[in-house]
Structures are given as structure tokens and as C-alpha cells.
Simulated assay, not measured.
Amino acid sequence: MTPSLKGKNIAILATDGFEESELFEPKKALDDAGAKTTVISLKEGEIKGWAKTDWGKSIKVDLTVEKARPDDYDGLLLPGGVMNPDKLRKESKAVEFTKKFADSGKPIAAICHGPQLLIETGMVKGRRMTSYPSVKTDLKNAGATWEDKEVITDNGLVTSRKPEDIPAFNRKMIEEFAEGRHIQRPGIDASI
């Protein structure tokens, strides 16, 4: 039975070039579980997805990262795609937004190339993670223990490798978002 996310507000941070299936399918799973999802990006309007080999569907941006407040959300979803996290990790506002989730112990779910943004926050050191294989060395160099598994959960952090892992990713993401804040890690400020 899928845990209920009724009353939970989930931020989805993405920009142009997100992998279409890695935003739309987890978003649908979150919505179906009762969460209120908010698409947050670098700009207003719409952002365009990438569908494997070409541009795909667009999605409406609900809020810019400049206006979004991490305190308003219970969890963070980071879709992958090659372009999406590469653009986000160069934007200090996107890095700061993500870091506040990590520092507060709120659950984060990142798939494919999504963990690249987490590297910029400094939160991957000492964590068990997975990702798309081309991100493996980056994660290891940042201090993560990388494993080739469809989904890994480490104290509120959920990571997966690729679109084929989405069913397992969605199950674990919903489970961790239902559990809420994880404050067992040293250095986490639970008051945020």
C-alpha cells in the first residue's frame, strides 16, 4: 500500500533540458499519493523537457527559485537529464535552495544526473548513492559511496540511475517523503 502524502508540499526543482519521464512520472506518483507539487525553476513561464533524443513536452513553472522558500516544502525532487542539473548547479540560488533541504534533514529524491546538483551543496560526503554511470566519478570524488543499484536510500536521500528505475524510485521517494524530516545525521539543524 502506498503511503499517503496528503498535506505534504513537495518542491520539484528543474529547468530546460530535464529528462521528461524523470519529472512527469514522479510528479504524477506524488500527486496520486496526495502531495501538492510545485514546479520551481530559474525562470517564469514553461520549461521544456528532453525525451531521450529530442525535445519533449513542456511544463508550467509555478514559482521561480528566487521566490521559493524551502521552509514551505516537506521534500525536494530533482529530476535528471544531462542539461538540467548542469544548468542548475551553476546557479547559486538553485544551489542555496537545495542546500537548505539538505541542512534541514528534509528528504530529497534525485534521479539520473540529478545528483550533480547535490554535489554542489557539499551534502554527498559519506552518503550511499547511485546515479547515471557518468556521474559516478563525480560523486566518488565528492566523498559519496557509489553503488550500481536501481534505488538507494540513505537517511532521507533517495537516488536512482535512469528512467527504467522510476517505479522503484517512486516507491522509495514516496516512502521517504511520508516519513518526513531525518535528523539523525550530525550537523543537521532540525529547526530550519
Score class of each variant (00 low, 15 high):
Lys36Ile: 12
Asp31Ser: 04
Ala168Phe: 00
Ser92Asp: 15
Tyr132Gln: 07
Gly143His: 10
Leu42Val: 02
Gly80Arg: 00
Lys140Asp: 06
Glu44Arg: 13
Glu66Ala: 14
Ile188Met: 13
Gly143Leu: 11
Ala110Asn: 10
Lys27Ala: 07
Ser134Gly: 10
Lys106Gln: 14
Asp72His: 13
Glu25Val: 05
Asp16Arg: 08
Val151Tyr: 14
Val39Pro: 08
Asn155Glu: 15
Ala51Arg: 11
Arg171Trp: 01
Ile47Val: 06
Ala29Glu: 04
Lys136Phe: 05
Val95Cys: 00
Ser41Pro: 00
Ile40Trp: 12
Ser4Met: 06
Ala142Phe: 07
Ala142Val: 08
Val124His: 12
Met123Cys: 12
Arg89His: 04
Pro186Ala: 14
Gly122Cys: 04
Ile192Lys: 15
Lys162Phe: 08
Glu20Phe: 00
Ser134Thr: 15
Val65Glu: 05
His113Ile: 10
Asp71Ile: 00
Ala109Tyr: 11
Gly187Gln: 09
Lys28His: 11
Val82Ser: 08
Lys57Met: 06
Val158Gly: 04
Val124Gln: 10
Pro107Arg: 04
Val61Asn: 04
Thr121Tyr: 13
Ile166Leu: 15
Ala11Asn: 07
Ser58Gln: 10
Asp138Arg: 11
Asp148Ile: 10
Glu22Pro: 00
Ile111Gln: 09
Lys87Ile: 01
Glu22Tyr: 09
Ile111Asp: 02
Lys28Cys: 01
Lys36Arg: 12
Asp71Tyr: 10
Trp146Ala: 14
Pro115Thr: 00
Pro85Ala: 01
Arg161Gly: 06
Met83Asp: 08
Pro167Lys: 10
Lys60Glu: 06
Val158Thr: 08
Lys43Ser: 09
Thr145Met: 11
Ala190Pro: 15
Pro85Arg: 07
Glu179Asp: 15
Val151Glu: 08
Gly56Cys: 03
Asn141Ser: 12
Asn170Gln: 14
Thr15Cys: 13
Gly45Thr: 01
Glu164Cys: 09
Glu96Phe: 10
Gly49Gln: 03
Lys149His: 09
Ser4Leu: 10
Ala168Tyr: 00
Ala142Glu: 07
Tyr73Ala: 06
Gly105Glu: 06
Lys28Ile: 00
Ile152Trp: 00
Gly49Arg: 07
His113Arg: 09
Asp189Glu: 08
Ser134Leu: 09
Asp54Gly: 00
Glu46Asp: 13
Ile183Met: 14
Val82Lys: 08
Arg127Gln: 11
Leu63Arg: 08
Met83His: 03
Asp71Gly: 02
Gly180Arg: 14
Gly114Pro: 05
Asp32Leu: 03
Lys140Ala: 08
Ile183Gly: 10
Thr145Cys: 03
Lys106Trp: 03
